[in-house]
């Protein structure tokens, strides 16, 4: 779906991290956790191609004046890393954006009652909030959130409000455990005898570590990947990643935008990447 969204709110929630809420058509409420949107930052040619962002949250707002229909909204959580995200951070309420979405596959929830272990690194937390919102309906959910410093660990209060048990780790020790969040995840798996399944999104190095942990302990692991995207709909073939059996002789490229961004970690090739 392609639609025009009006920005309702755009605020810096932690240094360098912004959360934007915008209007959306009702169809957006059907977005599955893990799906993403392609945002045209402005109508000019700079930046030219759209920028992909995970769906952080969707919902409806009751307008202040009675009688009006509830307004569906979409939220993204983004980190300013370059030109496009820099420009997004300068937009204000009532500015208009052109959006494509929801795109891609989402996470599969897995059986009710099973322990769900959500792992997020930095802004990788973005697509995991909507996931947690779904999962808490029928399962115990634990969040493992990591970042370089406490400023890189986002929206923990929101997760706690959902009833998610949160574990944090920072590389400088400014919040939670000092070190990598994957260590905290391993401690939990040790304590429970490798129960449940893992859902992860974050930097490639973290995903690779999580995939390794899942594989070693036979815990089902889903990861949400990034790829450099131009179209978001399987046409440009820019965003591909490698399947398990990929080699120069037997190439196995998967489209992150249409076959992903969520993959079972066991389907992907991690060595050398």
């Amino acid at each position: 779906m392609q639609f025009k969204a009006m920005i309702l709110d755009n605020a810096e929630v932690s240094p360098g991290y912004w959360r934007m809420r915008m209007t959306a058509p009702a169809e957006m409420l059907e977005a599955k956790p893990g799906q993403f949107v392609m945002v045209r930052v402005n109508p000019s040619i700079d930046p030219l191609i759209r920028r992909p962002f995970g769906v952080f949250d969707v919902g409806t707002l009751q307008p202040a004046f009675t009688g009006a229909a509830p307004q569906p909204y979409l939220e993204i959580l983004y980190r300013v890393v370059g030109k496009g995200t820099g420009m997004l951070s300068t937009l204000h309420a009532n500015d208009i954006l052109d959006i494509l979405g929801p795109l891609g596959t989402g996470f599969e929830n897995g059986p009710a009652g099973e322990e769900k272990l959500i792992v997020g690194g930095g802004v990788g937390l973005a697509p995991l909030y909507l996931l947690a919102k779904e999962l808490v309906k029928d399962s115990p959910v634990r969040l493992f959130a990591g970042g370089r410093t406490k400023d890189d660990v986002l929206c923990i209060t929101e997760f706690e409000r959902l009833g998610v048990e949160c574990y944090t780790a920072t590389e400088d020790g400014s919040l939670g455990e000092c070190g990598l969040v994957t260590k905290v995840l391993e401690q939990r798996l040790d304590a429970t005898g490798n129960k449940g399944q893992i859902f992860a999104c974050g930097p490639h190095g973290m995903l690779k570590a999580v995939a390794g942990i899942g594989a070693k302990r036979s815990v089902k692991t889903q990861v949400s990947l990034e790829g450099y995207m131009a179209c978001g709909m399987g046409a440009c073939l820019g965003c591909v990643c490698q399947g398990t059996e990929h080699s120069a002789e037997n190439p196995d490229y998967r489209c992150v935008c249409t076959e992903g961004p969520v993959f079972e970690a066991a389907e992907l090739k991690w060595e050398g990447n």
């Binding site: 450099y228 820019g238 965003c239 990643c241 196995d252 490229y253």
Partner: peptide
Amino acid sequence: AGNPTPRI
């Protein structure tokens, strides 16, 4: 199969 990434 095409080229390795980044492609774009």
